[in-house]
Lab assay of single mutants.
Amino acid sequence: MLSDEDFKAVFGMTRSAFANLPLWKQQNLKKEKGLF
């Protein structure tokens, strides 16, 4: 599990902003970052 700081560094957004994205968009971002 990423820390909040690492999460923001990897995804360029906060966890709450990420959580507001549609599920497909979350999955695409995870795949792009190799976290899926």
Rank of each mutant, 00 (worst) to 15 (best):
G34S: 08
K31G: 07
E32A: 12
L2A: 04
L23A: 09
P22F: 01
G34P: 04
D6V: 07
N28A: 15
Q27V: 14
M13W: 03
V10G: 02
F18T: 15
T14E: 08
G12L: 03
N28Q: 15
M13A: 01
R15H: 05
D4N: 05
D6S: 07
T14Y: 03
Q26L: 03
G12V: 00
A17L: 05
Q27Y: 13
L2F: 10
E5W: 07
D6Y: 09
K8V: 14
K8D: 07
P22S: 04
L23R: 11
R15E: 07
M13K: 01
D4G: 03
F36A: 12
S16F: 11
M1C: 13
L29N: 01
Q27A: 13
A9Y: 11
S3L: 05
Q26M: 02
N20R: 12
G34N: 10
Q26E: 00
T14A: 05
L21K: 00
Q26C: 01
S3Q: 04
A19K: 10
S3D: 11
E5F: 07
F18A: 01
N28C: 13
S3F: 04
G12S: 03
D4I: 03
K31W: 12
S16T: 13
L23Y: 13
F11N: 02
A9V: 12
M13D: 02
E5Q: 08
F11K: 00
A9T: 13
V10C: 05
M13T: 03
L23I: 11
D6M: 11
Q27T: 11
L21T: 01
K33A: 12
L29T: 03
L21H: 00
E32T: 10
P22Y: 02
K25M: 15
N20A: 14
A9M: 12
E32Q: 12
N20F: 05
R15V: 07
E32V: 07
N28G: 08
M1A: 10
T14R: 01
L35Q: 13
S16K: 14
Q27N: 14
K8F: 15
Q26N: 01
K25F: 11
T14N: 06
F18L: 03
A17F: 05
M1N: 12
M13G: 01
K31I: 13
S16R: 11
L2D: 07
V10A: 07
F18G: 00
M1R: 10
P22H: 01
A17G: 04
E5R: 06
G34H: 08
R15K: 15
T14K: 02
